[in-house]
């Protein structure tokens, strides 16, 4: 079994790799993470738990682009742009 820390690490790096390139959503991320570790090693529930911790630790944040995305933290948007 992959440890929670391993899943969190991989999940974080996956989101990092998408930054500025693709708005990534949870179902897509989840599938990628499970594919990477293999179903025997990592379940949907494990990914969910890892994501919840990363969000609670504010290492990742939710975004919204016509549906919810997962992103790296950023400064507040377009208020005065």
């Amino acid at each position: 079994m992959a440890s929670l820390e391993e899943i969190k690490d991989y999940l974080f790096h996956k989101v990092e790799s998408y930054a500025g390139k693709k708005q990534v959503k949870v179902p897509h991320l989840t599938q990628e993470i499970i594919e990477h570790f293999g179903e025997a090693e990592c379940s949907k529930k494990d990914v969910k738990e890892a994501l919840k911790e990363l969000i609670d630790e504010e290492k990742l944040v939710y975004g919204y682009y016509g549906g919810t995305t997962i992103e790296l933290p950023h400064v507040e948007g377009s208020a005065n742009a």
């Binding site: 500025g20 390139k21 693709k22 708005q23 682009y65 016509g66």
Partner: peptide
């Protein structure tokens, strides 16, 4: 704007 996210929107 981020161009990829604008395209994807």
């Amino acid at each position: 704007c981020e161009i990829p996210s604008t395209v994807a929107s």
